[in-house]
Amino acid sequence: MSTSAESAVAPPVLREALPQTGGVPGRRVADRLWSALLIAFGGAILVVAGVIVFSLGHVASPLLRATHLIDFLLGTVWDPERERFGALTYLYGTVVTSLLALVIAAPVSIGLALFVTEMSPPSLRSIVSFPLELLAGIPSVVYGLWGLFVLVPLLRETVEPFLARTLGFLPLFKGPPIGLGFLAAGMILAVMILPTMTSISIEVLKTVPGAQREAALALGATPWEATRLAVLPYARAGILGAIILGLGRALGETMAVTMVIGNTPRISASLFAPGYSLPSVIANEFAEASGAMHTGALAALGLLLFVVTLTFNSIARLLVRVVTRGPERSAA
């Protein structure tokens, strides 16, 4: 077909005879400049990503050159004076607090999302988005402040003694109730990731076709059965994505965790025990690091954090996209 397009245009002689149009070059330059400018802005995103990786690697390079990767990842000693750096304690704290946050926040946010999309009257729906936006808008340092002076005393004086009395036979709930520790960090993270998880879950649930729901209701299902049989299976992957996205946020959250986790580099089974997390140690030590090697080790922790969050976020984005974009695309 391309050959027919070539052969069908007028011969050159005729085209030469056509009148020239004025002002064209200037405008073409402007159009080109505009698209060049846009490409530059779009490219800036790639440049930023490249710079992030490069700069992290650069700052971390003293450590990466001196230490074997496995020793770094699995080491439990962190001694800046003797330049021995192991990441495992911090990785452990990050994973434990994030998983704890997930266990607390996931059921609440799924329930809340279902309540908003499936069970509440429409007038309530728009009202619920407001507190969610408020929760999402509160700076993490303010969460930390609240955690330190409200949540931690509450845990120390009421919640932890109660858990120790009733569930104390589990290693998770052994030890003195200090307040500061994994439990406090996990709970505050749960509050912080709740808005993200809920609002994405709501988005996902909104894409479930009404016909799906009505079909179940028309068969005589109760509202809950319609939700369980028709809505949840449809939205499962997207909700999983929302949860993983929340996990990604929890993994990288710095300030609130730093303020309530206790900042003690120790691996303990008990949730009552103080610990440390990857972002927290970076926050506490980076500005006063004792030399290039120490800075490098902290940057290497940052790199580790970057890789972990990148992995989880990519998975989550793919899951959410499969659900929310799927129906649109097939309709188009």
Partner: peptide
């Protein structure tokens, strides 16, 4: 010919 490349 308005499909000509000369025509803007």
């Amino acid at each position: 010919d308005l499909l000509s490349r000369k025509v803007d």
